[in-house]
Write a protein that binds this DNA or RNA. Structure first.
Lengths: 132, 132
DNA sequence: GTTCGTGCAAACGGTTTGCAACAAT
DNA sequence: ATTGTTGCAAACCGTTTGCACGAAC
């Protein structure tokens, strides 16, 4: 088990007790914890630690590259006609979403996953849209 | 241009004037409109139509399979250590998120997209987790 | 004594819900 | 009369922000 303090220092984050507690919780979590999940975990040992500090720390860790935020669950929703399948490209600068034709991307291996019955999938690509 | 009324009826949605307006807006939108985007569009021609009705209608259309909700932009966030890349599987029943090893899924074609410089991508799979 | 970190409380923004008025059948 | 639809206002929930207190160099 790697030293959490070392990790924080390596990424340029001053290892305060609160940050160590939050980092331990998120790095050792088995599932994909939300901010409030982490608050719940940390508070068991540290009841005074505030929700704000959890958010502060998570945003700091994301900014420093320790963590990667995943937008997977419910949240801000956009709508697509369900007519034809397609993938999505998200412009990192503007947030603009573009459709990518289904045939442009080939995905293989999804039917060989033993533990998962895959009913659907999509690829989300991120980067810079080229304009000319 | 297909008849919006026909589409609604085909999916078992009573075509009220408000629903027709919302469906027109979302089905003819070029980009990926949010609920409020659609409200803005519809209100130009129908200033009395309420935000609630837009949400009611969109949820109805999603439930009937006319629209597909996309969770791509900011929303509820979960966190991953940024150590190793992986894809994600979301259980449709429970919402549980599982990591899929990067090598288990192969994606090809993303580097041939002329209009997009792809910096990163991930596959989001949805279905039923097998338990035994 | 200034900088950095913490945390309360309030705000924010997208979405949902309770409920009352209103068609429509 | 019952059922389905609309829409206001309020609640909700995850997240962010303003600000004041406190710790550390």
């Amino acid at each position: 088990m790697p030293d959490t303090v070392k990790i924080l220092q390596d990424y340029g984050v001053s290892p305060t007790p609160q940050r160590i507690a939050v980092a331990e919780a998120v790095l050792h979590a088995k599932a994909h914890p939300s901010a409030d999940d982490i608050w719940g975990i940390v508070r068991r040992q540290w009841p005074t630690l505030s929700r704000t500090t959890v958010y502060n720390t998570l945003n700091l860790l994301v900014g420093k590259g320790v963590l990667k935020p995943q937008i997977i669950k419910e949240g801000k929703i956009v709508y697509d006609p369900s007519a034809e399948k397609h993938h999505h490209f998200v412009d990192e600068k503007t947030g603009e979403i573009c459709d990518i034709p289904w045939e442009a991307i080939r995905v293989t291996g999804e039917d060989a996953l033993e533990d998962f019955e895959v009913l659907e999938y999509q690829v989300i690509l991120r980067g810079n849209r080229r304009r000319r």
